[in-house]
Protein backbone atom coordinates (compact mmCIF):
# COMPACT_ATOMS: atom_id res chain seq x y z
CA UNK A 1 0.00 0.00 0.00
CA UNK A 2 1.19 3.48 -0.68
CA UNK A 3 2.50 5.51 2.21
CA UNK A 4 1.89 9.20 1.99
CA UNK A 5 3.31 11.44 4.66
CA UNK A 6 2.09 14.69 3.22
CA UNK A 7 -1.27 14.45 4.93
CA UNK A 8 0.48 14.69 8.26
CA UNK A 9 1.92 18.15 7.66
CA UNK A 10 -1.03 20.20 8.91
CA UNK A 11 -0.91 18.18 12.09
CA UNK A 12 2.73 18.65 12.85
CA UNK A 13 2.01 21.28 15.47
CA UNK A 14 -0.42 18.94 17.21
CA UNK A 15 2.22 16.25 17.37
CA UNK A 16 4.87 18.64 18.63
CA UNK A 17 2.46 20.02 21.19
CA UNK A 18 1.86 16.48 22.37
CA UNK A 19 5.59 15.89 22.62
CA UNK A 20 6.01 19.04 24.67
CA UNK A 21 3.23 18.01 27.05
CA UNK A 22 4.83 14.61 27.49
CA UNK A 23 8.18 16.24 28.21
CA UNK A 24 7.08 18.73 30.81
CA UNK A 25 4.90 16.24 32.62
CA UNK A 26 7.88 13.85 32.67
CA UNK A 27 10.24 16.46 34.06
CA UNK A 28 7.87 17.59 36.80
CA UNK A 29 7.05 14.01 37.76
CA UNK A 30 10.76 13.15 37.81
CA UNK A 31 11.71 16.06 40.03
CA UNK A 32 8.80 15.74 42.44
CA UNK A 33 8.90 11.96 42.36
CA UNK A 34 12.62 11.80 43.11
CA UNK A 35 12.30 14.16 46.05
CA UNK A 36 9.43 12.09 47.40
CA UNK A 37 11.45 8.96 46.65
CA UNK A 38 14.33 10.09 48.86
CA UNK A 39 11.91 10.75 51.70
CA UNK A 40 10.35 7.34 51.17
CA UNK A 41 13.76 5.68 51.30
CA UNK A 42 14.71 7.55 54.45
CA UNK A 43 11.40 6.58 55.99
CA UNK A 44 11.83 2.97 55.07
CA UNK A 45 15.41 2.83 56.34
CA UNK A 46 14.71 4.90 59.42
CA UNK A 47 14.26 3.77 62.97
CA UNK A 48 10.56 4.44 63.45
CA UNK A 49 9.08 1.02 62.76
CA UNK A 50 5.57 2.20 61.85
CA UNK A 51 6.88 4.67 59.28
CA UNK A 52 9.18 2.02 57.85
CA UNK A 53 6.31 -0.45 57.43
CA UNK A 54 4.06 2.18 55.84
CA UNK A 55 6.75 3.17 53.37
CA UNK A 56 7.42 -0.45 52.48
CA UNK A 57 3.70 -1.09 51.89
CA UNK A 58 3.45 1.97 49.70
CA UNK A 59 6.48 0.98 47.63
CA UNK A 60 5.30 -2.61 47.20
CA UNK A 61 1.77 -1.53 46.30
CA UNK A 62 2.99 0.78 43.55
CA UNK A 63 5.58 -1.60 42.18
CA UNK A 64 3.21 -4.53 41.89
CA UNK A 65 0.31 -2.80 40.16
CA UNK A 66 0.14 -1.33 36.66
CA UNK A 67 0.51 2.41 36.17
CA UNK A 68 -2.70 2.43 34.16
CA UNK A 69 -4.73 1.13 37.08
CA UNK A 70 -3.08 3.68 39.36
CA UNK A 71 -4.00 6.44 36.91
CA UNK A 72 -7.60 5.23 36.72
CA UNK A 73 -7.87 5.27 40.50
CA UNK A 74 -6.45 8.76 40.82
CA UNK A 75 -8.46 10.08 37.88
CA UNK A 76 -11.71 8.83 39.37
CA UNK A 77 -10.76 9.81 42.87
CA UNK A 78 -10.06 13.40 41.90
CA UNK A 79 -13.63 14.68 42.16
CA UNK A 80 -13.74 13.76 45.84
CA UNK A 81 -10.69 15.99 46.27
CA UNK A 82 -12.55 18.82 44.67
CA UNK A 83 -10.83 18.73 41.29
CA UNK A 84 -12.92 17.99 38.25
CA UNK A 85 -11.92 15.05 36.13
CA UNK A 86 -8.68 16.53 34.85
CA UNK A 87 -6.27 14.27 33.01
CA UNK A 88 -3.31 16.57 33.48
CA UNK A 89 -3.62 16.61 37.25
CA UNK A 90 -4.28 12.90 37.33
CA UNK A 91 -1.23 12.21 35.19
CA UNK A 92 1.02 14.51 37.22
CA UNK A 93 -0.04 13.04 40.54
CA UNK A 94 -0.01 9.49 39.22
CA UNK A 95 3.39 9.66 37.59
CA UNK A 96 4.90 11.42 40.60
CA UNK A 97 3.57 8.90 43.11
CA UNK A 98 4.60 6.07 40.82
CA UNK A 99 8.09 7.42 40.21
CA UNK A 100 8.65 7.94 43.93
CA UNK A 101 8.34 4.23 44.68
CA UNK A 102 10.88 3.29 42.02
CA UNK A 103 13.40 5.98 42.94
CA UNK A 104 13.16 4.96 46.59
CA UNK A 105 14.38 1.52 45.62
CA UNK A 106 17.08 3.02 43.42
CA UNK A 107 18.37 5.11 46.33
CA UNK A 108 18.33 2.09 48.59
CA UNK A 109 20.49 0.15 46.16
CA UNK A 110 22.74 3.16 45.78
CA UNK A 111 23.35 3.64 49.48
CA UNK A 112 23.86 -0.05 50.05
CA UNK A 113 26.32 -0.29 47.17
CA UNK A 114 28.88 1.93 48.83
CA UNK A 115 31.53 -0.40 50.33
CA UNK A 116 31.30 -0.89 54.06
CA UNK A 117 34.99 -0.05 54.37
CA UNK A 118 34.41 3.59 53.52
CA UNK A 119 31.95 3.93 56.36
CA UNK A 120 34.44 2.25 58.70
CA UNK A 121 37.24 4.55 57.63
CA UNK A 122 35.00 7.48 58.48
CA UNK A 123 34.18 5.95 61.84
CA UNK A 124 37.85 5.26 62.54
CA UNK A 125 38.57 8.92 61.90
CA UNK A 126 36.02 9.86 64.55
CA UNK A 127 33.28 11.20 62.27
CA UNK A 128 29.68 11.21 63.42
CA UNK A 129 27.05 9.23 61.43
CA UNK A 130 25.51 12.33 59.87
CA UNK A 131 28.95 13.53 58.79
CA UNK A 132 29.75 10.13 57.34
CA UNK A 133 26.60 10.17 55.21
CA UNK A 134 27.13 13.72 54.05
CA UNK A 135 30.83 13.76 53.24
CA UNK A 136 31.65 10.14 52.50
CA UNK A 137 28.61 8.12 51.41
CA UNK A 138 26.44 10.57 49.51
CA UNK A 139 28.66 11.33 46.51
CA UNK A 140 29.72 7.76 45.68
CA UNK A 141 26.12 6.61 46.20
CA UNK A 142 24.80 9.24 43.79
CA UNK A 143 27.40 8.25 41.25
CA UNK A 144 26.41 4.58 41.46
CA UNK A 145 22.78 5.52 41.21
CA UNK A 146 23.12 8.01 38.36
CA UNK A 147 22.68 5.58 35.43
CA UNK A 148 19.64 4.07 37.10
CA UNK A 149 18.15 7.51 37.70
CA UNK A 150 18.66 8.68 34.14
CA UNK A 151 17.24 5.39 32.91
CA UNK A 152 14.24 6.08 35.12
CA UNK A 153 13.81 9.45 33.42
CA UNK A 154 13.65 7.82 30.00
CA UNK A 155 11.23 5.16 31.22
CA UNK A 156 9.05 7.85 32.74
CA UNK A 157 9.00 9.74 29.45
CA UNK A 158 7.85 6.60 27.64
CA UNK A 159 5.33 5.84 30.37
CA UNK A 160 3.71 9.25 29.90
CA UNK A 161 2.12 7.70 26.82
CA UNK A 162 -0.21 5.78 29.11
CA UNK A 163 -1.81 9.08 29.99
CA UNK A 164 -3.38 9.03 26.55
CA UNK A 165 -5.81 6.40 27.81
CA UNK A 166 -7.23 8.90 30.28
CA UNK A 167 -7.27 11.54 27.55
CA UNK A 168 -4.05 13.30 28.48
CA UNK A 169 -3.24 15.42 25.41
CA UNK A 170 0.29 14.09 25.00
CA UNK A 171 2.06 12.62 21.97
CA UNK A 172 0.40 9.19 21.78
CA UNK A 173 -2.99 10.82 22.12
CA UNK A 174 -2.05 13.15 19.27
CA UNK A 175 -0.93 10.18 17.19
CA UNK A 176 -4.28 8.48 17.61
CA UNK A 177 -6.18 11.69 16.84
CA UNK A 178 -4.22 12.21 13.64
CA UNK A 179 -4.70 8.58 12.73
CA UNK A 180 -8.44 8.78 13.19
CA UNK A 181 -8.62 11.98 11.19
CA UNK A 182 -6.34 11.22 8.27
CA UNK A 183 -6.39 7.42 8.27
CA UNK A 184 -2.63 7.65 7.73
CA UNK A 185 -2.07 5.24 10.62
CA UNK A 186 1.26 3.74 9.60
CA UNK A 187 2.74 7.09 8.68
CA UNK A 188 1.76 8.84 11.88
CA UNK A 189 2.85 5.89 13.99
CA UNK A 190 6.21 5.98 12.25
CA UNK A 191 6.63 9.72 12.78
CA UNK A 192 5.45 9.51 16.37
CA UNK A 193 7.70 6.53 17.01
CA UNK A 194 10.67 8.41 15.60
CA UNK A 195 9.90 11.38 17.83
CA UNK A 196 9.88 9.16 20.90
CA UNK A 197 13.00 7.37 19.77
CA UNK A 198 14.79 10.61 19.03
CA UNK A 199 14.03 12.16 22.40
CA UNK A 200 14.92 9.04 24.37
CA UNK A 201 18.17 8.68 22.42
CA UNK A 202 19.01 12.31 23.19
CA UNK A 203 18.24 11.76 26.87
CA UNK A 204 20.52 8.74 26.85
CA UNK A 205 23.42 10.61 25.27
CA UNK A 206 22.96 13.62 27.54
CA UNK A 207 23.01 11.46 30.64
CA UNK A 208 26.21 9.69 29.62
CA UNK A 209 27.80 13.08 29.04
CA UNK A 210 26.55 14.32 32.39
CA UNK A 211 27.90 11.27 34.14
CA UNK A 212 31.46 11.76 32.92
CA UNK A 213 31.32 15.46 33.67
CA UNK A 214 29.87 15.24 37.14
CA UNK A 215 31.86 12.25 38.27
CA UNK A 216 35.26 12.78 36.73
CA UNK A 217 36.95 11.08 39.67
CA UNK A 218 35.26 7.82 38.87
CA UNK A 219 36.44 7.34 35.30
CA UNK A 220 37.64 3.79 34.92
CA UNK A 221 36.78 2.73 38.44
CA UNK A 222 33.82 1.21 40.14
CA UNK A 223 33.08 2.29 43.69
Amino acid sequence: MALYYGDLLPFSSLLLQGLWTALYITLIAMAAGSALGVLLYLGKAGRVKLVSILCTCYIEAIRNTPLLVQLYLIYFALPSLGINLNPIWAALIGLTLNNAAYTAEIYRAGFESVPKGLREAGKALGMKPAQIVRYIILTPATRNVFPALTNQLILLFLASSIGSIISLPELTNAIMTVSNTTYRTIEVLTVGGLLYLGVSALMSLASKRAETTLFRWAVGTHV
Binding site: P115, G117, L118, E120, A121, A124, L125, Y135, I136, T139, P140, R143, F215, W217, A218, T221, V223
Partner: peptide, 13 residues
Protein backbone atom coordinates in the same frame (compact mmCIF):
# COMPACT_ATOMS: atom_id res chain seq x y z
CA UNK B 1 43.69 5.74 67.73
CA UNK B 2 44.27 5.92 63.99
CA UNK B 3 43.47 2.92 61.83
CA UNK B 4 44.89 1.70 58.54
CA UNK B 5 42.81 -0.91 56.72
CA UNK B 6 43.78 -3.85 54.55
CA UNK B 7 41.77 -2.45 51.64
CA UNK B 8 42.83 1.17 52.14
CA UNK B 9 39.25 2.53 52.14
CA UNK B 10 40.26 5.86 50.63
CA UNK B 11 37.34 8.12 49.70
CA UNK B 12 37.21 7.79 45.91
CA UNK B 13 35.43 11.06 45.22
Amino acid sequence: AGMVFQHFNLFPH
